[in-house]
Amino acid sequence: MSAVLIAVLVLLGLGLVFGILLGYSSIRFKVEGNPLVDQVDSLLPQTQCGQCGHPGCRPYAEAIVNNDEAINKCPPGGLSTIEALADLLDVEAIPLDAEHGEEQIKKVAYIREDECIGCTKCIQACPVDAILGAAKQMHTVIVSECTGCDLCVEPCPVDCIDMLPIETTLNGWQWPVPKSGVELIATDRHPGIALEADA
């Protein structure tokens, strides 16, 4: 009898301990917000340009998760973003919705500084605070911070902001996709290639 009692008590005790443990950890390690939104947001290019029709990348991510918004509305992300989103959400990848703009080469804003009248309009438009300046002073873009979103171009009353394509430098240069039939070097082949499974 007492054995049964002990077993019951032990089980009860275990249940209690684990219950408390689980309860505690659910409070202690609570995940803030919607983790799926975070995941989707992290796949978006964070240009914050609003071309998707939402006021920024996160709102678009929220719309995708909560309102079943289509995943093909982000032109700066292009096909690779759509594919990544399709992968994450386990849906079919669809081509970019041209209505929201086309995938373009990466650009960065440039202010023609001697024409700037220092109106600060562009600063107010920039979503990532990439523009430096003060009222009635010349303004300039911090290139490394600019996402190329285009939002500062329109508000400028003297049209002195250009979107320039990012120049490829020696360090930024990339190997292109190989085309078949291109000339390669490792070719002075003669017979006598020894395969060495083991030396």
Binding site: Q46, G56, R58, Q174
Partner: peptide, 27 residues
């Protein structure tokens, strides 16, 4: 050539991811 291309693409993606994270923080 394929490997070089793939490496470059991966590096670019990493760089873009890094930039995107940075932009998000700033935003």
């Amino acid at each position: 050539q394929y490997y070089r291309f793939a490496k470059a693409e991966i590096r670019k993606e990493d760089e873009e991811q890094r930039k995107a994270d940075h932009a998000r923080i700033r935003f």
